Computed example of a mutant assay.
Amino acid sequence: MDIQQVVIVGYHAAELLEIAAVTTTLETANLHPGPAIYQTRLAALGGRPVTCGNGLTVQAHEALERVKGPLDTLVVAGGVGCEEAAADRHIVAHVRRLARESRRVASVCTGSAVLAAAGLLDGRRATTHWMWAPIFAERYPEVRFDARPIFVRDGRVITAAGVTSALDLALAFVEEDRGPEIAREVSRHLVTYLQRPGDQAQMSIFTAAPPAGDPVVRQAVELITADLAADLSTPALAAATGVSERHLARLFARHLDISPARFVRRVRTEAAAHLLTTTGLPVSVIAARCGFGTAEALRQAFTSQYGTPPAHYRAARNQP
């Protein structure tokens, strides 16, 4: 039986949920018969216990500096200690070294900062926790950070978004290595959604608070999310917020890096995606509720954002 060595890199104030999501998913896959089995290990500098961000302590299996390849998969966890870890030249050097000896390299959440610091994301598209994406994009300009997807695969490097996306990442590993049937069995065992697709938004735009320093943008976003079927044209939003259309467009570009019209379109499309996967409403009804007016208008917007028509999206996400 082929043993697939998986090493998870931990550090002070790493996120326990991310470590556990990966290890539990892969160990659950081991319960099902197949040609491969995962051997997961947590590594930290000096082999010291990892005191996680929530205060709980986890014992590392071995010292990071003693880990030798070849490895199947190297995963760097995220957590509130990510900046300190990314600034630690020893952690970064060992991650860089082990990446050269791994078939697959991944990060969860803000673990992407460590990969970026090691130069492993240069020239690549990557994701991370939505809250940190603009910070990391400025700090690591060679990386194309995208805050929208659950996870991004660029060659052999895979980056996952915030916290619970570790579960999606690990299920993607299982599907890639063991096939979709085993991945389905693992997801049933864990009582979780069968691997949210990587192109699914990592967070609802309804919970994305605009910058607190700009009340006009905040008011506009509140108007948009309060009633998607309302008149949300730029002139209507400008009038409701008491500014000119040009000034509103400047504020959106400065604070959200998007125009008001494109923001509205994205919110409506994400709301439609949510209704497609959580309700049995006809596409025409969803289109009306989300402010598209017609099913064809929704289809065009949806295909543009997700690369597939609404009906195909619903069928793919609701497979047994």
Rank of each mutant, 00 (worst) to 15 (best):
F136N: 02
N318T: 14
I150P: 00
A44V: 10
S284N: 14
D72R: 14
E27Y: 15
D214F: 07
G53H: 07
A147S: 15
G293M: 06
T192A: 10
A21L: 12
I205W: 07
L194V: 11
G10E: 10
L232A: 01
L298A: 01
T40W: 13
F151D: 00
I286V: 11
E62Q: 14
A86Y: 09
D122M: 05
E27F: 12
N54E: 11
E175N: 05
N54L: 08
L115V: 09
V152E: 00
Q300N: 10
E245T: 14
P35M: 05
V264C: 00
A236V: 04
A311L: 12
V75Y: 04
V283E: 11
D146T: 04
S304Y: 14
A226L: 10
G78L: 07
Y193P: 12
A99L: 08
S102Q: 11
H61G: 13
Y306W: 09
H61N: 15
L42W: 04
G155E: 08
A272G: 03
N54I: 10
V67Q: 06
M1Y: 13
H90C: 15
Q300H: 11
L98T: 04
L194C: 07
P197R: 05
T294G: 03
I258R: 02
G179M: 12
T279G: 04
V6Q: 01
T303P: 03
S107C: 07
R188L: 11
A44S: 13
R100I: 06
E270L: 14
A117S: 13
L228K: 00
T51F: 02
A240C: 08
G53C: 11
V152G: 00
R188E: 13
E83D: 15
G123Q: 09
A21F: 13
R299V: 10
A316K: 10
Y140N: 04
L74W: 12
A229S: 13
P211E: 14
L276A: 04
A63L: 11
L194K: 03
P210M: 02
V243Y: 03
V264F: 00
I158K: 00
V114P: 07
G34V: 06
E62K: 01
V283Y: 05
G111K: 01
R139H: 08
A315F: 12
Y140T: 04
R178Y: 11
G79W: 02
V174G: 01
D2S: 14
S107P: 12
A118V: 09
W130Y: 14
P141F: 04
L74N: 04
A236H: 03
M1P: 15
F145I: 02
E222Q: 11
Q319A: 14
A14Y: 03
R184M: 15
T23M: 12
H274N: 12
T127M: 01
R125E: 10
H61S: 15
T308E: 12
P309M: 03
I37R: 15
I135L: 15
H255M: 08
E181A: 12
V267P: 00
R184F: 13
P310L: 00
E175R: 11
G10I: 08
T40Y: 05
